[in-house]
């Protein structure tokens, strides 16, 4: 019984972080980055296995350098093009590390894609830190984050630094996703981000209710998906992915 409680709790924590991050992702139009940065878990894990350093160091190192690289390239180039190239680079470096290590690599792929029902008690502290810190950090930085997204010029006039905000946001996104993905899988994290975030951005005009609504929607979607998965024994990623699309379409129809 305690086992089931753990899963509901863990998925709820991931949903809170994903919902909060998703709202900011949508208002900053960083959907592609939200898909690309979590892939850093793949080269991170592969490099850790090749060079023999601890897994957390590989995950954190590659996630942070990916975020830094993306922020730098975005300054001078088209954003989605820079993101696509970063994504290709991350996966290609992962493939290189796998090829050079010569081990059986099923575990590295497993690490990237994760298994929701495979989480154990020892994952809860990591997810707890992510689930609490990400919303709090984003809440504290909500004003500069939304201002720098809506009008970087205005922010610069006021003495703020939009580039610093971009680096900060991408680093939070990369670290949170990089550590959540090995536990729950990329699909779950990603599908909990964009759907609730986009719906909340359309329904709420101001940032604070938007952030709260996105977190609430993500939590509802995650738990509904989990419940349906228990009932049908189908994969939970199916329900969250399709459910996110349904929420988004519904809100689109309502708001016109």
């Amino acid at each position: 019984m305690s086992y089931l409680v753990e899963i509901w709790l863990a998925v709820g924590l991931v949903a809170l972080a994903a919902g909060a991050a998703g709202y900011i992702v949508v208002i900053r139009r960083a959907g592609f980055a939200a898909h690309a940065l979590p892939m850093a878990a793949f080269p991170g894990a592969a490099a850790a296995s090749l060079f023999g350093f601890p897994l957390w160091a590989g995950l954190a190192g590659v996630a942070l350098s990916g975020a830094g690289l993306l922020a730098l390239v975005q300054r001078t180039a088209r954003r989605d093009a820079a993101t696509a190239l970063l994504l290709a680079l991350l996966l290609a470096v992962g493939a290189l590390c796998l090829s050079l290590s010569g081990h059986y690599a099923g575990s590295v792929y497993g690490l990237l894609f994760g298994q929701v029902f495979a989480l154990g008690t020892e994952d809860l502290p990591v997810l707890g830190v992510i689930g609490l810190c990400v919303p709090v950090l984003l809440f504290l930085a909500l004003r500069p984050l939304s201002l720098s997204a809506l009008s970087p010029e205005l922010m610069r006039v006021q003495g703020g630094r939009p580039f610093a905000m971009e680096v900060f946001f991408l680093a939070v996104l990369a670290l949170a996703a990089g550590f959540a993905v090995p536990v729950t899988g990329a699909l779950l994290v990603f599908s909990l981000m964009l759907g609730p975030g986009a719906a909340a951005a359309r329904l709420c005009g101001s940032p604070l209710p938007g952030l709260a609504l996105a977190m609430g929607l993500a939590l509802g979607l995650a738990w509904a998906g989990l419940g349906l998965a228990f009932l049908t024994d189908w994969p939970v990623g199916f329900f969250t992915g399709v459910g996110a699309a349904a929420i988004y379409l519904l809100v689109r129809v309502k708001t016109g």
Partner: peptide
């Protein structure tokens, strides 16, 4: 392809009730 495969809840429940589990190991 683990990219697209997920363990379902019934597997977790089977593990919950098991007394003995045999695995292959070696990351397989």
């Amino acid at each position: 392809d683990p990219h697209e495969f997920e363990v379902t809840p019934s597997v977790a429940q089977i593990f919950q009730r098991a007394d003995l589990v045999v695995e292959n190991g070696l990351g397989y």
